[in-house]
Computed example of a mutant assay.
Amino acid sequence: MIRLKKRILTILSISMFALLLIGLSTGPWSQMLPFGSVFNTEQEVDGPSQDDRSGVSFEDRNLSGEFHRLDEITNAIQAQEPDQEDDGIIPASIEIPAIDVKAEIEPVGILDNGQMGVPSEAEGVAWFEPGANPGEIGNAVMAGHVDSTTGPAIFFDLDELESGDEIIITDEDDRSFIFTVQNQESYPHENAPMENIFGTSETRNLNLITCTGTFNQEEGTHDERLVVYTELNEAQSDIEQKNDSSNPPDSPTNVEVDGSFITWHAVDEEDIVGYRVYQGDSIEESEFEHVESVSPHERKRSPANHGDSTDSIYYVTAVDVYGQESDPSELIQIER
Rank of each mutant, 00 (worst) to 15 (best):
M1H: 13
I2F: 12
I2Q: 14
R7G: 05
L9T: 05
I11K: 00
L12S: 05
I14Q: 03
S15K: 00
F17D: 10
L20F: 15
L20A: 11
I22K: 12
G23Y: 12
S25A: 13
T26G: 15
G27L: 07
S30Y: 06
F35H: 03
V38M: 12
E44Y: 11
V45P: 01
V45L: 10
P48D: 09
S49P: 05
D51K: 15
D51F: 13
G55E: 02
V56F: 08
S57Y: 13
D60H: 12
E66H: 13
F67L: 09
H68R: 15
R69M: 14
T74W: 04
A76K: 11
A76V: 12
A76Q: 13
Q78N: 06
P82F: 12
P82I: 11
D83Q: 15
Q84I: 04
E85N: 11
D86Q: 06
D87I: 13
I90N: 13
P91V: 06
P91Q: 08
S93T: 14
E95Y: 10
A103M: 06
E106Y: 07
D112K: 03
N113C: 06
Q115V: 06
Q115K: 09
Q115W: 10
V118T: 02
A122M: 09
G124E: 12
G124H: 10
G131A: 01
N133Y: 12
P134C: 05
E136F: 02
M142W: 02
G144F: 01
H145Q: 02
T149N: 14
A153L: 04
A153P: 01
F155V: 02
D159Q: 01
E160S: 03
E162I: 02
S163K: 11
D165I: 14
E166P: 09
E166R: 15
I167S: 01
D173G: 12
D173E: 02
D174F: 08
D174Q: 10
S176G: 11
F177Q: 14
V181T: 01
V181I: 03
V181L: 00
N183V: 11
E185I: 00
S186L: 02
S186Y: 01
H189V: 03
H189I: 01
E190C: 08
N191D: 12
P193S: 08
I197N: 00
I197V: 11
N207W: 04
L208F: 01
I209W: 00
I209L: 00
T210Y: 01
C211E: 01
G213V: 03
G213L: 08
G213N: 08
Q217V: 05
E218M: 09
D223G: 02
E224L: 00
T230P: 07
E231T: 13
L232K: 00
L232S: 00
N243P: 03
D244S: 06
S251R: 08
T253E: 15
F261E: 06
F261Q: 15
E269T: 13
G274Y: 14
Y275H: 06
Q279V: 11
D281M: 13
S282W: 02
I283S: 05
E284K: 04
F288T: 12
V291H: 10
S293G: 12
S293H: 13
V294M: 07
P296K: 02
P296A: 02
H297Q: 14
H297S: 15
R299G: 07
R301H: 09
A304R: 10
H306A: 09
G307N: 05
S312R: 05
S312N: 11
I313V: 15
Y314F: 14
Y314P: 06
V321L: 10
Y322K: 05
G323H: 08
G323L: 04
D327M: 08
L331Q: 13
E335L: 11
